[in-house]
């Protein structure tokens, strides 16, 4: 039989374990996400400051984006409620074209990021995801506050949003798409066609 003191000790330990362990796990997740962003930013600046030809830089960036960003999840988010009303064929076509738009938007301005440097700040849990703060310094520009939203639920951490000076890229993109859809009878096909036209015009 346990005496009272032993029982109290065990109860406390149990309570503590119950409350502390998940908090420790959360701190671990946040730290892991912070390290993930630190590495991502190191790799990104190595590419843009590496002095290789622009075409090579774009290939390297593309690889980083598809490895570390959950592009398909971002695509789904940006279509919002229309994801469910789209046919499987449209979902596939849209995701494909979204990948191209995203990559060309990012790699298209690779030259502007010459000389960029980053400082990674605090990582904090936000519901299931982690936000990692950072400061982006570009020569000749005021430092920018950029937060990275990292999803950790699917195992490997992946970027799902970038919040630059308080503006979320995926929210802004969703606002653009829903406004376009509202003016085109909520027709997902019209959006796909417009995005297609945009990527062919850009290339």
């Amino acid at each position: 039989m346990l005496n009272r003191r032993q029982f109290a000790f065990l109860a406390c330990a149990g309570l503590l374990g119950g409350s502390v362990l998940p908090a420790v796990a959360r701190a671990d997740t946040a730290d892991a996400a912070g390290a993930f962003i630190e590495k991502l930013l190191r790799d990104l600046s190595a590419v843009v400051n590496g002095g290789k030809p622009v075409a090579d830089q774009q290939v390297a960036l593309r690889k980083i984006i598809f490895e570390r960003v959950d592009v398909d999840a971002v695509a789904r988010f940006c279509l919002g409620r229309f994801w469910r009303s789209a046919t499987p064929q449209q979902q596939k076509e849209y995701t494909e074209i979204f990948r191209n738009v995203m990559v060309s938007n990012i790699t298209g301005k690779v030259g502007e990021y010459q000389g960029v440097s980053f400082t990674v700040g605090k990582a904090q849990m936000r519901e299931d995801d982690v936000t990692v703060a950072s400061i982006v310094n570009r020569p000749g520009n005021a430092p920018n506050k950029v937060d990275w939203l990292v999803a950790t639920t699917s195992g490997a951490p992946k970027v799902v949003d970038v919040i630059a000076e308080g503006t979320s890229l995926r929210l802004t993109q969703r606002g653009d798409y829903t406004a376009f859809l509202a003016r085109n009878n909520n027709d997902v096909q019209a959006l796909i066609d417009a995005l297609k036209k945009q990527t062919t015009a850009a290339n």
């Binding site: 308080g166 503006t167 606002g175 417009a194």
Partner: peptide
């Protein structure tokens, strides 16, 4: 150049940015 609906994109950016300054 990149927005399908620049009016809506600007609306979203301006409102988010303003809110972030207020939260700050």
């Amino acid at each position: 150049a990149q927005a399908l609906d620049p009016y809506a994109t600007l609306r979203s950016l301006v409102r988010q940015h303003r809110q972030s300054k207020i939260d700050e």
